[in-house]
Amino acid sequence: MTGPNRLTVVRAGALTTVQDLGRAGYAHLGVPRSGALDEPAHRLANRLAGNPEQCATLETTVNGCAVRPESAVTAVVTGAPCPVRVDGRPVAWGAPVRVPAGAVLEAGPASAGLRSYVALAGGIAVPPVLGSRSRDLLSGLGPDPLTDGMSLPLGTPYGPPGAADVTPWPAPPASAGGLVLPVVLGPRDDWFTAEALRTFAGPGFRVAPASNRIGLRTEGPALERGRPGELPSEGMPLGAVQVPPDGRPVVFLADHPTTGGYPVIGVVPEGALAGAAQAAPGTGVRFVVVRA
């Protein structure tokens, strides 16, 4: 190889960002954790590409992206299933594929779910900011979202790509059947009426189009507060279900603000958030109260 490998963005797609496992440990400075929204898919892509799981991948949104590496490289696409092509030729999704020097690797539009992950052997090697290469869309830390023509550095491949016969893909939440999100109530469920708590655990919520990496917004019933006044700002964890004054619950995802003043009715355990990352607008949402 002549010098470090790079790739050129041929088609950036609707929103493609560099993501790794995020920058935990800075919430007290107002810095969101950030990182891949569908973390299991990101980790899997790296394993299949022979990378450590913290290597940076590309997180696409809805319609994929296309990139052209200067030198030959192994690539893997996971997350939302989509057609994968190398110079127009169909190749496997969810398995290591060889991309020759100068060939275009394309992750097409998602056939289910929202976000695909493109791992390249060696990882995207942009300089880390506070220990992470993730783009945080709330505070603007990390590399800019991809644009057509942009060039990104790749790291040195770690070794042979991982061998796997099967790529597990949890069925994406169907628009009719819906996304089921377990919720541990609290810390501020006592700010809501008994009726609101019943409504929260009932039907009628859908993923709102305004959802993004900061939060999964819902439309549907409004949850009524049982008490007036304002809650002083308090720390917000990943998965917090915050209820703003309009009463529509918002599930905080990776780029969420670290403090907030609207009451948190409950918290979705981290392991259930990958489903939220793949739920398209209009998908039904069912909150299921579980014990801590």
Binding site: A24, G25, A27, G235, L238, T258, T259
Partner: peptide, 15 residues
């Protein structure tokens, strides 16, 4: 603990 986040009249201990 991963995060210690003070606020107006609380401290969040996360992780």
């Amino acid at each position: 603990v991963r995060e210690i986040v003070p606020a107006a009249r609380t401290v969040l201990l996360d992780g």
